[in-house]
Nucleic acid binder design. Structure first.
Lengths: 202, 202
DNA sequence: ATTTCGTTTTAAACGCTGTTTAAAACGATT
DNA sequence: AATCGTTTTAAACAGCGTTTAAAACGAAAT
């Protein structure tokens, strides 16, 4: 048997499912092959390595999700509305996509070697319009002068880090998965408030 | 030759150095044994596993560092002063201890199975006094009513996450290691300001 | 001084991992 | 029906963390 053109897709799908379920490191290539119903070596035939397979899955996932975030950052929305939308969409994204969260964590974990992949998820490289806005609004006196780098790092931190320490928050507050999701939902209001508040002229 | 009671210490030291240098995952047990000048199997004789060795190094590191943070949280310091001190000490700690940062990231990465180790670093379990303070100050009208959980998660996020995306920040702003350290130093002022500002009654 | 006994060290192997190899099977083209 | 590039296969590779069983050792007991 040969030329079943969906072999590549079968590997891709099986790996995606297993990576989500057990994490990248704890998923073996033999397991992926078994789940996909293919020979072990085919994984290396289609993707050159397991790392490469991970990248393929990851960048597809990012492409699906980051477009909207960049669109928001680049838009003409008023500053506070833009912050609201960005935070809301980003939190929803991470909240609905556990695979994305664990992939982001895996990449951050070996961040020294994986800057390229990090760029894609960070939107840090689409902040020109946003930065301009921060500076101009400050010039007009609508907000207090604000360092754009710190502000953007703050925003990313407040959005993403809680997902990283999810298990910790659940354990400490003795809450369930569902209740954690509620906690995250609260942050869609809380984080923009905090950020916008810090911009208010004194 | 036998009974050289410092064999355990030699393994511990060699592993610490290598873990810092190349990360836990990319350091093999054979490499540790070679650097320590001991037989491969001795690593499993003294520590039961590589994971165990990691834990031993990690918890020693945490013990050295977290005591002061807990002391600050439990102190009678005035709220704003407490926030200042906590943020400053924590940022200094992470900034002077790259090993701690990469260990924290390694543990967060496999957070599902490692809650115990996470507890140790989070200080999330020493927040009783701090929580009480937030509630009482709000009752007195000195600060606006604030959810303690969100506030503490905010604080941790703003302190820790920037270290996780260090490479990203450096690449995006085209800055050196030294300049990143400066950026971090700025946050010792910026983060407390942001947090305390959010407590101001409206 | 020799035997005994628990501790420490050793070399070799185990089962697992990701990856490579070389040959086989296959389908379309000639 | 033969050819040729693509796809699939079984088997092996080198590396990993870990285990095994025997050896080497030092101190205590005879």
């Amino acid at each position: 048997m040969a030329k079943s053109r969906n072999t590549e897709q079968k590997i891709f799908d099986a790996a995606t499912e297993l990576f989500l379920e057990k994490g990248v490191d704890r998923t073996s290539v033999r397991e992926i092959a078994s789940k996909a119903g293919i020979n072990l070596a085919l994984m290396n035939y289609y993707f050159r390595s397991k790392e490469n397979l991970f990248d393929a899955i990851f960048s597809q996932l990012v492409k699906q999700n980051s477009a909207e975030l960049i669109r928001i950052l680049d838009s003409d929305l008023e500053l506070t509305e833009k912050i609201h939308q960005y935070v809301n969409v980003y939190i929803d994204m991470l909240s609905e996509n556990p695979l994305l969260v664990s992939f982001v964590m895996a990449i951050i974990h070996r961040s020294r070697e994986r800057i390229t992949e990090m760029k894609a998820i960070s939107n840090l490289y689409a902040t020109d319009q946003f930065t301009r806005q921060l500076i101009e609004e400050a010039k007009k006196g609508n907000i207090r002068p604000t360092d754009p780098t710190h502000f953007f790092v703050d925003m990313l931190s407040l959005i993403a880090f809680p997902f990283a320490i999810k298990m910790l928050v659940m354990d400490k507050n003795n809450i369930s998965e569902k209740e954690f999701q509620l906690f995250i939902q609260e942050r869609k209001k809380h984080v923009p408030e905090l950020l916008i508040d810090s911009l208010r002229p004194r």
